[in-house]
Amino acid sequence: MVWNVYPRDLMAELERLQRGYPQSLDHNASIRGSGRSRYPALNVGGTPESVEIYAFAPGLDPARIELLLDRGVLTIAGERPDDLPRDDARTAVHIGERFAGRFRRVVNLPEDADPESVAASYRDGVLHISVQRRVASAPRRINVT
């Protein structure tokens, strides 16, 4: 984490502090980390029929997002160009919080996720990946006799 010696925006600093929370506080700790401070931020959820992943990845060329699904592990990778100019005599960078550079985030899919039926779309800077669950694992009521 990079700290500004002279903070220019208190709220931004506070948010940076918040992002720097020890990951051990995350009760849902994953071996790959909580990724709270990473780009893109992820929301992951599901319905009985599908697993839904939302990656908040603004400013990307959708054709250049790399999506890989391998043995139940979904990897989202790519690169966001750095459009921040260098500080010089004519330009001053007052705030530089936006992520730039290569990124990679990994999501463990549940066992019933079907790697053969995945759909991905990119809209308003959010990458939405929908993975269908195998039909066999749709919930069944078991009668007790």
Partner: peptide, 24 residues
């Protein structure tokens, strides 16, 4: 949510770039 921003100033003004993913 506080969007992440870049703010750059030059002789003719200020450029502000903000990330607001998911907003139409």
């Amino acid at each position: 949510l506080m969007p992440a921003v870049d703010v750059v100033e030059d002789a003719s003004g200020i450029s502000l770039v903000a990330d607001l993913p998911g907003v139409a």
